[in-house]
Design a protein around this nucleic acid. Structure first.
Lengths: 231, 231
DNA sequence: CCGCGACGTTGCTCTGAAACAAACTCCCGG
DNA sequence: CCGGGAGTTTGTTTCAGAGCAACGTCGCGG
């Protein structure tokens, strides 16, 4: 196994206050692994034995109902910690993490969490900040679900993905990982049919361009209007 | 101002590992205040300058949209910490807390948070456990919103309140704080009309008994069935 | 290069629940 | 004891979006 390079972690918020030697220490304890698109990194309800950092790729955090329906709670971008159940004194993962694109992640045994928070300055602070942001995000989604119509919710979901993972191209903002209509319907609590119809309409109106599993927002401003109740 | 009695805190999870003298210390730094039904303890977006513990009563945690609609994210029961923004490195409250019934709460300036977690054994652990539970709860609600029909959601909401605050009476399980149809519709993302119709039907079927702002679940088992998609 | 499975589109139907409307009842304060 | 506001009920209308159905299309693996 090749030694991991220190530059992987320098600059990432949880480690930004640390010196070279500390980062070395942390890396030497990490396991690194690649995940194919569609693979689960860990599953809801299973024993939380490791915590993770996404180095590259994108993840979907997913919950499944008894009825087999699933909903996408949030996405994880490179540089973010995830599976941080130990931070909340949980011993099982509260949701499943699936690679939305080919991904690369580091992980450490939960046993080290306590030591990381104690010994590495800024680690605890930044981890809890992340958690706070995530909690806020979920509350936003919940509010949206409860109050907005389907079209607004789908528009918001697309915007959220574009903001989080968007690359600017000459065509517009491109979502950096593969997304199906079904995925979007799982984010918004609707059906793939409705999503398909909306995207078709938007495409006709010149707001987005989309092919299989691939969406470019060509007119973000108009999409923002669509995400707003008074259109 | 009368000295607060130590028995108020003994036995509550965040303080259960502490001795008499430490509890004394904590109480001596606390402000205690009573809130009338309907009063806000703090508001969304305002500077988070204190954190709180609910001693008696019940709270609703509420978010309001720009459009003026509101949704109830969760309820707080006696003995729980709330407004613990500092635990997540936030400097504003992410939601509004409103007294659902006349309530009594202690509070401390945020500046003390760091000291509490450092000096009082078990405080940090228990606070983060609470947060973890709350996050899980919100995710459940989100999943429910996204996948269940209105009747199921309303049934779940009523059950949740009954479980959290229920007193057993000879009639059934009584929700311990005032709830209007509007409140329930704010928990479930529907209208007070629909909630009223559902409660009327359930009352006819002998599942609940309700008067103004007051609900008794007479047949919890049947309500559980109603909360399940396959009835 | 072909076939199959995953993904996407579009039409049609039907219903749950929102929207609109109106009236009733309880309770508090003056 | 009266008036008014907050909470509740019930009826009617309307339509967004789910459900069902069928077909089109892309791209991978054999």
């Amino acid at each position: 196994m090749p030694r991991l390079d220190e530059s992987l972690l320098t600059g990432l918020p949880p480690f930004s206050r640390l010196g070279r030697d500390q980062i070395r220490e942390i890396l030497d304890q990490a396991a690194s692994r690649r995940y194919d698109e569609g693979t689960a990194i860990f599953e809801e309800g299973f024993e939380a034995d490791r915590f993770y950092l996404l180095l590259d790729g994108y993840l979907r955090v997913v919950r499944t109902t008894e009825g087999g329906e699933q909903i996408i709670v949030l996405h994880i971008s490179p540089g973010q910690l995830f599976g941080i159940a130990p931070a909340l004194q949980r011993n099982t993962y509260p949701a499943t993490a699936v690679a939305a694109a080919e991904s690369l992640a580091l992980s450490w045994p939960v046993g080290l969490w306590e030591r990381f928070t104690r010994e590495y300055e800024g680690f605890a602070t930044e981890s809890y900040r992340t958690l706070g942001q995530r909690l806020g995000q979920i509350q936003d989604t919940l509010t949206e679900m409860a109050t907005q119509a389907v079209e607004q919710r789908v528009a918001s979901a697309v915007l959220r993905m574009a903001n989080q993972s968007g690359r600017k191209t000459d065509e517009g903002i491109e979502i950096a990982f593969p997304v199906t209509r079904q995925n979007i319907s799982d984010m918004t609590g609707t059906t793939l049919h409705t999503v398909s119809r909306l995207l078709s309409r938007w495409e006709k109106d010149g707001v987005v361009r989309s092919t299989r599993k691939h969406i470019v927002v060509t007119d973000p401003h108009r999409l923002v209007l669509l995400s707003d109740p008074q259109g």
